[in-house]
Simulated assay, not measured.
Amino acid sequence: MMSSKFKESMRNIKSNRPLISVQDIVTFIEKGEKYLKLDVLTEQEEIEILHGIVLSPDYQRKYRSSIREESSIIESLLIGIPIPEVFLVISGENDAQIRHVMDGQHRLNAIFRYINNKFPLKNLEIIGENPAYDNKKFSELDKKDKIKILGSHLSILEFESFEDPEVEIELFKRYNRNTKPLEIQEIEMATYFSETSKFISNFINSLIEDSEDNLFHFDNLREMKLLKLYNITKGRNDKQKNHQEICIIFSVLEKGLQENIRDGITASKVFLERKSKLFKRNEDENLIEMREIFDDFNELIIKISNEVEFPFSMSMVSDKKERQSKF
């Protein structure tokens, strides 16, 4: 049952509806991509990523869309059909006012990918097999068509940062009710966003990217070992699980075992919520110190792995040889 305080918060949601050109949307997404790769922001970097849009954070479902579906969105821009409204949320009170996507990720992703020549137009239902468009990437279009796309405007519903994170969770549920629902961890990673949560995502993603790009070599054995020890894989659900597990580790390293927290799901949520509150108030998350502690912890785990293959598994406390979870 909703409390009176929660109902009041729902009634006091603040938002605005700007029209933003596709050209500016692409610029904001590029800023968001840059932001996700940065660690501690300098003053100049905060200015450079101002109003960035975080398009593909790990809490969002894995982007799956056919070229035909993506082409349909671009066709709408070319012939002037309005694109459904996109919902953005300002992530806290940070000066850079970074925004994440609550609803509309696939629309923005298709536009961003097309502008960056990631796919050619296919199966245009209204324009048809016009040689000016069929099988053409953005760079191959006539100038007038490039200007038509970049000059098109999208309707944006932009929410100010929510004081009560439960309000954002409720909105996520409502806006995703008619699509594949977000997992609990996905919603929490979105709602309780922070620099600490972003660091954990970057830690996971960097290990995956290095392994995929074959960047592991004799000087990089540490990363290769960590990928194995944390049992990190690139699957959407696996990455959510990895993020949750590392949140639990961070929670214990920072606050110890807390008597009122009896399970990992709660530990992760409480940790993410605590860091998010600091982020939204633009206060210190203690991330610099926590990164140093986490580095030391990883060195310890690597040393333990010389004796126990999977230190996060039950093999730490049991000699039984039957199949056990690695983490």
Rank of each mutant, 00 (worst) to 15 (best):
R17A: 12
R17T: 12
P18Y: 10
P18I: 10
I20D: 00
I20H: 01
S21T: 13
V22A: 02
V22T: 03
Q23S: 13
Q23Y: 12
D24M: 05
D24L: 09
I25H: 06
I25N: 02
V26P: 03
I29C: 05
I29F: 09
I29M: 00
I29Q: 00
E30T: 02
K31H: 13
G32I: 07
G32M: 11
E33F: 04
E33I: 02
K34S: 14
Y35V: 05
L36I: 11
L36T: 08
K37M: 11
L38V: 08
V40E: 15
V40R: 14
L41E: 10
T42W: 09
T42K: 10
T42S: 15
E43Q: 14
E43A: 14
Q44G: 06
E45L: 10
E46V: 09
E46D: 07
E46M: 15
I47Y: 15
I47D: 15
I49Q: 04
L50D: 12
L50V: 08
H51L: 15
G52Y: 09
G52E: 08
G52R: 03
G52L: 04
V54W: 03
L55K: 01
S56P: 03
P57G: 00
P57L: 01
D58W: 02
Y59P: 00
Y59F: 10
Y59H: 09
Y63Q: 11
Y63E: 13
R64F: 14
R64A: 15
R64P: 13
S65R: 10
S65V: 04
S65I: 06
S66L: 07
I67R: 13
I67S: 14
R68C: 05
S71F: 05
S71A: 07
I73R: 08
I73T: 07
I74C: 08
I74F: 01
E75M: 05
E75V: 05
S76C: 06
S76W: 04
L77K: 02
